[in-house]
Amino acid sequence: MAAPKLPPLPTDKGVWDEHTLSRRGFLEATLGALAGLGTLLVAVPSVRFLIGNSLEPSTTKWVELGKVADLPAAAVTQVNYSTRATDAWRQVTQRGTVYVSSADGGTTFTALDGTCTHLGCIVQWDEGKGAFICPCHSGYYTREGEVISGPPPHRLRQLAVKVQDGTLLAEI
């Protein structure tokens, strides 16, 4: 690759070194390569650093929702759970909202994550309308969590549940 010619220096200043002129193309290519290498050396670890632990796979855990005997057999009950969790470098109390209902009078339970599947607001149970309603964009779900109307793309997330020693647990 032919390097563009350098303009001559003012005569009172002196002259360009002949040797450097002849090697200019090579030097430019070397500089480019070094700069490129340097950029990569900085950029690749930086990107990895910035991604950090963002992409760690989700883990689930079981949280206690309450004694089976205390849960209403018919009504949809809002249960706020709290559990200790790690938030980056911080130990925090993680809180969430789960709606518990039973279709067979308190033998088996359904637990629905209260997070609207549209944009993540927390839905409210409206006993009168018999529906979960999202306050943000008026998404409606049935008691079972299926979408009735509004923008939600899919049903409320159903959580796995189990009963242990008379206590209802859900997997979040």
Partner: peptide, 22 residues
Amino acid sequence: SVPLIGNFLIRIMRGGENLGQA
């Protein structure tokens, strides 16, 4: 909600799965 890369984007923006310290 962006197709295909949505989950990646949300994780990168939040620095993890949930909105929190990160």
